[in-house]
Design a protein around this nucleic acid. Structure first.
Lengths: 121, 121
DNA sequence: CGTTGACCTGGAGCGCACTCCAGGTTGCAC
DNA sequence: GTGCAACCTGGAGTGCGCTCCAGGTCAACG
């Protein structure tokens, strides 16, 4: 069973060590096992879970909601419907963001073309 | 020449009155003309400029950079190349965000399907 | 002329998501 | 066993983009 020191876990997830601790403190990650001396030891399932978190985070889910999701995940199968609902809602939010970006892109492209045509004139 | 009181300007741009003042204070908007009593009077060109700002803002341009852009715009034609450069750079940033969202969406969709298949099982 | 709601200013406060720090401990390498 | 980097904790600090507030002024209406 592969294990990872904090630095290694940070490198593999793209999340800083401080943020790893922060995520643990606020309950986004379950308490991470320790060495006898108290140093954290991450495992593959931690990294996988962190992968899910960063995906949600990067797509704009607020930490508050990720927390709710994490909490439900901790509570087992009975919460699967609720978790599905959260993801479906998030999916809509992501689609909305994408639509907003697409629209902004159109405007930006227009302006870019305007500047370019000015330059070549 | 149509004019707009702050409330009206806010309503038409989707930007709060406080934010309008804030944008002016930090130099995103030129000093807005006033009544003799000192109350702001917005005009169509203000609203149009605010449209550009909100578009840039919503697509993730940091205020710092919008400020730079506004500053250049104030300085006239000579800065058009630089403004074009900023927009081209922003365009790339927007495309990158969209790509990130698309990728997140794929993961979210996968998880949604997983939950759905569990439910129907 | 009085009322009332919109507006003014400067500055403080807020929520978010980290990030950094001091002062101390651990653990591996030599 | 000594050195030294990596790690620990609790708590303070940061940057961003607003948002709110107190205490006062303005403007349109009846």
């Amino acid at each position: 069973m592969t294990t990872y020191a904090p630095q290694e876990a940070a490198a593999r997830t793209g999340v800083s060590i401080d943020t790893l601790r922060y995520y643990e403190r606020i309950g986004l990650i379950d308490d991470v096992p320790r060495t006898t001396g108290g140093q954290r030891v991450y495992r593959d399932d931690h990294l996988n879970w962190l992968g899910v978190l960063t995906c949600l985070r990067r797509s704009g889910m607020p930490v508050r909601e990720m927390r709710r999701y994490a909490e439900l995940a901790r509570d087992g199968e009975a919460t699967e419907d609720e978790r599905l609902r959260i993801l479906e809602e998030h999916r809509e939010a992501v689609l909305a963001s994408m639509a907003e970006l697409r629209q902004a892109l159109r405007v930006v492209d227009e302006k870019i073309n305007w500047y370019r045509s000015r330059r070549s004139a």
